[in-house]
Simulated assay, not measured.
Amino acid sequence: MKEPAGFWIRFAAFLSDGIIVWIASVLLTLIVYGTLFNTPRELTNMLSLLYTLLLPVFWAGFTLGKRMLGIRITKMDGSHPGLLAMVLRVIVGGLVYGLTFGVGVIVSAIMIGVREDKRAIHDFIAGTQVVYD
């Protein structure tokens, strides 16, 4: 079993992915609307959803941020996550975090920090883990 990735490396990958999605949104806004400003929030949200949901399915558990930092999402048996696992992880996990008004996010951060396996709530929902590659 590979070493689980801790809080700070996962947080850095999350921030990196956010910057990447933001840049893509701004560039797409420039192409479609001819301006660098006033990027529609819906566009950014849709790009972010598709990026976090589909890229790990097609790229063996990596997003660009995770790849840069040498970590990846895997299923508990070490295999690559499929579409169902990513739907559970991103959409159902996101619903849990929203329904708990963010308390679930705080609990997940603590879980990653203190649990030996470094798994968060969305990892348990989806049967996934984040490990060093």
Rank of each mutant, 00 (worst) to 15 (best):
H80C: 11
V131H: 00
A13L: 02
Q129N: 03
G34F: 08
L88S: 15
F62S: 10
L47W: 04
A5K: 00
F14R: 10
L30F: 04
L84E: 08
L53H: 07
I19N: 11
I125M: 07
F14L: 09
T63K: 02
K66P: 10
G113Y: 05
M111T: 02
S25I: 09
R41S: 11
V21C: 08
S25Y: 09
G34S: 10
T44P: 13
A13R: 00
P56K: 11
I19E: 08
G78T: 03
T63N: 11
W59Q: 10
A12I: 15
G94I: 06
F58G: 12
V87L: 15
R67F: 07
V131Y: 00
G93T: 04
V92I: 11
V87N: 05
F7W: 03
V103A: 07
F14S: 08
I9P: 09
V107W: 12
K118V: 00
L27E: 04
S16Q: 14
A5G: 00
N38V: 14
P40T: 04
T74Q: 08
E42H: 09
M76A: 14
V96N: 06
S48C: 07
L99P: 15
L47M: 10
E116D: 14
V21Q: 11
G93M: 03
F14I: 10
G65D: 10
Y97G: 09
I106T: 07
L55K: 02
D123K: 00
V105W: 10
K118N: 05
E42S: 13
D133S: 12
M46D: 15
G113A: 09
F37P: 14
K66S: 10
V32C: 13
V103K: 04
G78N: 08
L64T: 11
A60L: 14
A60F: 15
G113F: 05
M1W: 15
E3W: 14
W59A: 14
R115N: 04
R41E: 13
R72M: 07
I9W: 02
L88W: 13
N45F: 15
W22Y: 13
L83W: 01
G6Q: 01
R41V: 12
